[in-house]
């Protein structure tokens, strides 16, 4: 890593040879993944290619049978989503993992509520609602999501895009190292999708790398730096966005085409390498 100046960037998140079997079904068959700081890595693949399993393994929702996950070069064994979160990996799940009847502030701090200072907080576990509300307003404001008027509004009364906004804000507020987003635009209209893509770019610009799982090729090509193609439980290619067309990406995904000879799935994202 000292010999070549362009390779000084170490992966922030790396998965090696992940295997997960459910009885006779192999969801992950030796999957790899490499994520560099500051990039948006899109993960694409057909249904059943193991995208979800890969993401669950990285976010601690699934414990792989074999393989290794490294965060900043240190091997991690995630036993639960809590472990991944404390390693700085936040996930926006496709079904958002929100509590619909609770308000925005409660959802933003779900599972890591701010307690009152002193014995009231650690002894009686009293919550500091006031602080959570003001923090929520600040976080939503930072992300340009303050079109949502009322922090005390129940999440179920928001539109699909606004709900996505809440989930993204939660990840952005706590994800110190990596943010994973599973199909964030799948349930949204054109306008709201655009807003979510802006959010992704905004998070990347703040220096936090994003893994984006998506079926939507135009969205992938709009924000991604590199495209990780998952097929039959493993990574069959990881290419620079600039090196591939949408049609080729789909062909790779479906197996109609094989990856170009000599391509390096671990190559630095072009946008960052030339820096």
């Amino acid at each position: 890593m000292t010999s070549n100046p362009t390779l000084t960037t170490q992966p922030i998140l790396q998965a090696r040879n992940l295997v997960k079997r459910y009885g006779h079904v192999t969801a992950l068959a030796g999957a790899d993944l490499t994520l560099y700081p500051g990039e948006v890595l899109a993960v694409i693949g057909d249904n059943g290619a193991g995208k979800s399993s890969l993401i669950k393994a990285l976010s601690g929702a699934l414990i792989p049978d074999e393989g290794e996950i490294q965060v900043d070069g240190a091997t991690q064994k995630f036993r639960s989503p809590l472990d991944a979160r404390s390693a700085g990996i936040e996930t926006v799940y496709q079904h958002l993992a929100l509590a619909p009847a609770r308000d925005i502030a409660a959802n933003l701090f779900l599972g890591r509520e701010i307690r009152k200072p002193g014995p009231l907080g650690w002894g009686l576990r009293l919550l500091d609602h006031k602080k959570m509300r003001s923090e929520t307003a600040r976080i939503m404001g930072d992300l340009g999501l303050l079109t949502i008027q009322n922090i005390g509004q129940a999440v179920e009364t928001l539109s699909g895009g606004q709900r996505q906004g809440v989930a993204v804000a939660r990840a952005a507020a706590f994800g110190s190292r990596v943010i994973i987003m599973d199909e964030p635009t799948a349930a949204l209209g054109v306008k709201e999708s655009g807003k979510v893509l802006d959010l992704i770019a905004g998070i990347r610009d703040r220096g936090i790398p994003v893994i984006l799982i998506s079926h939507d090729m135009p969205h992938v090509f709009e924000v991604a730096d590199r495209i990780h193609v998952q097929r039959l439980g493993r990574r069959i290619a990881c290419v620079q966005k600039t090196d591939i067309t949408m049609n080729d990406a789909v062909s790779l995904m479906t197996g109609a085409q094989t990856p170009p000879a000599g391509h390096d799935p671990e190559a630095l994202p072009a946008r960052l390498a030339v820096r």
Binding site: H95, L110, R125
Partner: peptide
């Protein structure tokens, strides 16, 4: 209304899987 325990009861009843994924 005021404790983490109370908040988690509501969250579990509202969306158990979501609460689990949120680290509860």
């Amino acid at each position: 209304k005021r404790t983490a325990w109370g908040e988690h009861i509501y969250a579990v009843g509202d969306n158990a899987e979501g609460a689990r994924l949120s680290g509860i």
